[in-house]
Amino acid sequence: MAVSDILVLVTSVILNRIAGIYFPYSFLSITPVCSLRTVLTSTAVDSSTWLTVTFTFDRFVVISCQKLKIKYCTKKTATCVTGIVSALCTIKSAFSYFIYEPLYTFNNVPWFCKPKLIFYLSPAWIAYDLIRCIFNPLLPFVLILLLNALTVRYILVANRARRRLRAQSHGENQNDQEIEKRRKSIVLLFAISGSFLLLYFLFFITILYVQIAKVSYFSGSDFSESTFILEENGFMFLFLCSCINPFIYAGSQNKFRVELKNGLKYPLRRFLK
């Protein structure tokens, strides 16, 4: 998950945004490379999104499905799921390479990318665009909300029942390690999926607006245009989610926090000596 988020920053922010603004006439702007950048960006964003969904499902199984947990929550399953998600995202995004054509040709070199007219007219491309919107972010958004709701419902019911049983047998003041484990698991789950829902919300609204209002995604760079402002702010929060998540992954690990504290204390100890 951390790798996929870092790839979002590399492809979407460095190769697309920074390179496009500060190096507009580099080899990255040649049409085949420009199309490839779009594929890489789409693959990284989709992988990051769907790995968040699979993580949310994994936490749901751990907490709510004790029988399935033994078979599903294994290293082998995690490896297979990660591979399948990455492969499907790559295959789905590969079609984006054929959407674009050169903005203009200079000295027989095609420059920049613009969507082909057939992308807006062909039933096949219209269907692909609809599937792409459902694939990310509509379906992930709904699945994460649903899984979180089911997980919270199970925890509340299970905790109430567990407290009643323990109160009858051990008294009210006994610490429950199982409830403490569930609490830590739910904090991690909400930190990751909650940040995803909050920061992807504007991107989600943008997709809905584009589909309902029948306007173009590719609205140029008119800063006074409301569609452009909405779309760019949606992307900004999407990239911010990828910036935040690696810190959440690392910060949730006890060993990482211990090593971080040791690293911060080491220069002070050396200075005092």
Results as ranks from 00 to 15, higher is better:
residue 60 F to L: 08
residue 90 T to M: 14
residue 32 P to F: 14
residue 151 T to S: 02
residue 126 I to Y: 12
residue 108 N to C: 06
residue 87 A to V: 09
residue 41 T to S: 11
residue 123 P to H: 15
residue 104 Y to C: 09
residue 191 A to G: 03
residue 177 Q to N: 14
residue 100 Y to I: 06
residue 149 A to V: 04
residue 45 V to G: 00
residue 9 L to W: 01
residue 245 N to P: 00
residue 122 S to Y: 06
residue 196 F to G: 03
residue 201 F to H: 03
residue 2 A to W: 12
residue 174 Q to L: 15
residue 163 R to G: 02
residue 33 V to R: 03
residue 114 K to R: 15
residue 266 Y to K: 14
residue 203 F to H: 02
residue 6 I to L: 14
residue 25 Y to Q: 09
residue 44 A to I: 01
residue 57 F to D: 00
residue 206 T to W: 03
residue 42 S to T: 10
residue 82 T to S: 14
residue 191 A to K: 05
residue 65 C to Q: 10
residue 65 C to G: 00
residue 134 I to C: 01
residue 258 V to T: 13
residue 265 K to N: 11
residue 148 N to M: 13
residue 63 I to C: 03
residue 166 R to P: 01
residue 272 L to Q: 14
residue 204 F to K: 04
residue 32 P to Q: 09
residue 35 S to D: 02
residue 26 S to L: 00
residue 219 S to Q: 09
residue 217 Y to M: 12
residue 240 L to H: 07
residue 222 D to H: 06
residue 257 R to D: 04
residue 206 T to H: 05
residue 99 I to C: 05
residue 185 S to M: 08
residue 110 P to C: 00
residue 115 P to E: 06
residue 254 N to E: 14
residue 239 F to M: 12
residue 52 T to G: 03
residue 64 S to D: 07
residue 46 D to T: 07
residue 64 S to T: 11
residue 103 L to G: 04
residue 104 Y to N: 13
residue 22 Y to E: 07
residue 228 F to P: 01
residue 17 R to D: 13
residue 2 A to Y: 11
residue 21 I to C: 08
residue 54 T to N: 00
residue 198 L to H: 06
residue 146 L to A: 08
residue 199 L to I: 04
residue 68 L to E: 10
residue 251 G to R: 14
residue 66 Q to V: 08
residue 254 N to A: 13
residue 209 Y to V: 02
residue 87 A to Y: 12
residue 6 I to W: 09
residue 26 S to T: 00
residue 89 C to I: 01
residue 235 F to C: 05
residue 263 G to P: 05
residue 197 L to R: 08
residue 146 L to C: 06
residue 206 T to I: 03
residue 28 L to C: 05
residue 181 K to N: 12
residue 67 K to S: 09
residue 66 Q to C: 07
residue 107 N to C: 09
residue 241 C to E: 06
residue 48 S to C: 13
residue 76 K to N: 12
residue 77 T to C: 15
residue 126 I to S: 11
residue 172 E to T: 10
residue 194 G to V: 05
residue 234 G to T: 04
residue 47 S to A: 13
residue 194 G to L: 08
residue 141 F to P: 01
residue 54 T to F: 04
residue 155 I to K: 07
residue 255 K to E: 12
residue 224 S to D: 02
residue 93 S to G: 00
residue 78 A to C: 11
residue 61 V to C: 03
residue 139 L to S: 02
residue 273 K to A: 11
residue 247 F to Q: 09
residue 155 I to V: 12
residue 262 N to H: 14
residue 111 W to F: 13
residue 156 L to A: 07
residue 83 G to K: 09
residue 78 A to H: 10
residue 44 A to L: 04
residue 270 R to K: 15
residue 154 Y to A: 07
residue 268 L to F: 11
residue 123 P to Q: 15
